[in-house]
Design a protein around this nucleic acid. Structure first.
Lengths: 82, 82
DNA sequence: CGTGTAAGGAATTCTGACACG
DNA sequence: CGTGTAAGGAATTCTGACACG
């Protein structure tokens, strides 16, 4: 399910996040939607799952920087702050 | 993949069909997209596959009525016309 | 830092209709 | 019958900014 086919409105419904949050997470490099001709973001089901995960981490007090995928492709779950 | 999440534009890209054709096939009861609040059609990947199948059958000379799913849930592939 | 909102514009989708055949 | 198109409207999405803290 990596086909990026959903508009942000559908992602909002599926994740419960606001469009503002979704766009902000993209700005912070946490997700990478594609763009349609007209410039609309297109997301995959994987993006939706990742957003749900991000949402939970954020509620646990993580910052967007901590959630960015490392070069190794794994999640940085603890940046050392206390 | 039965979640109906794609707008008609995405389905157009994925199937190569025109929006007119997609809407017509819905009118003829060949597919059943859901509607968003604002009235926009939302399709699933299954709908996309079904549309591709419909497209091939149409090229083979079938009529929309012949392609409507029967009560048994199977495709009527030959209505008896010759 | 993370998120809400009002602002204005651009792209998307919708319906009903006329056309052709 | 199946599909193209122009028409006008409504809903969607986009960006950049101001706000708060």
């Amino acid at each position: 399910m990596h086909e990026k086919v959903m508009n942000i409105g559908t992602v909002r419904e599926l994740t419960g996040l606001s469009e503002r949050q979704i766009r902000y997470y993209e700005e912070k490099q946490l997700i990478f939607p594609r763009r349609s001709k007209g410039g609309a973001r297109k997301f995959s089901f994987e993006d939706v799952e990742r957003l749900k995960e991000i949402h939970m981490k954020m509620k646990d007090g993580f910052r967007t920087f901590d959630l960015r995928k490392s070069a190794a492709g794994t999640l940085k779950l603890d940046s050392g702050r206390s």
